[in-house]
Amino acid sequence: MSDLMVIINMLALVYLGWFVERSLQKNKSKMWLFSGLVVVMLVILFTLPNYGPTYSYIMVTTILMYLVLTVSWALFSGPTGYISLAPAAFFGVGIYTSAVLGKDIPLLAVVLLGGILSFVLAMIVGALTLRLKGTYFIMFTFGLVLLITNLLLWYEIKFTGTRGRFVVAAGNDTIYYVMLGIFILLLITAFIIKRSKFGLALQSIGQNEEAAAHMGINVTGVKVIVFAITAFFMGMAGAIMTMKWTYIDPYSAFDLFRSFLPVLMAIFGGMRYFYGPVLGSVIFAYLEEKLLTEFPYVYKLAFGIVLIAVILYLPDGLAGLVDKIRARIARKKNALT
């Protein structure tokens, strides 16, 4: 029963992602219907703690965490092709903001500050590294996570004399609402970026950076600012999520798995589509939770196999598969008439 609740809410999340993609298209037919459905989906999502069992919204919170990480990752890395392995760093900055300041300032302020600190870190890192290309950029962002982890570890042991920290906990429903709020804010931001000339600029940078510079695009500036905006969301997600975990140390806060998973989830869902990463992370996160609890020993193995299969057979991910099937149905219809 509670699984059904989770799945209904997962569908609602995917729908929101799809709706953003749809409203970016020129095709405006039936928009009133789709917009109406958005309201329905939002009601379903926002009232989940009222009708669903605790387990269901804890589960959806986890899914939302992956959603925020993956969608914001794909917002920058999708069009530009700059593969960043820094999500764990920005997420971790949020976590530590929460751990250090959680006692002293109100919850929403902590979350916002977590985002802002990540934003600042991303601005600095971006200004330094976004002139790098390809492998160098990937390596640097990867190194950044390790650098921060070890710096923190050194600091904690030397100055505070402990390894980890306790975090002020928050209620499961509070965490859920805040996480949902962050996700919706992210969708709105993504919509604004994609519709503005920034979206077009990002796309052109991904295709031919020098030509983009010829067009009068401040290439580095655009990259840095969008990179930082996505880090803002990752930081906020870290700040709120950690209130569920109550105890953290540098290793768990800067878990590199949180850098890899967004990449995998986005590829799994299909990066050429906006709702691809949404679809990918919703399904992936659900499977992860299920497999982790029911088959703890084989779950990473199963992931590996799924991923290899997707890369080999579905280069455009699940969203690409959906498109292919729709095209086939449309062809059949045309053939009949």
């Binding site: 077009l200 796309q203 295709q207 031919n208 030509a211």
Partner: peptide, 21 residues
Amino acid sequence: PEGRRLFTDMNVLENLEIGAY
């Protein structure tokens, strides 16, 4: 530019639009 340097995977309209950046 020489060799045109178009954004080959974007459509004609998008290419023109980005020119007005």
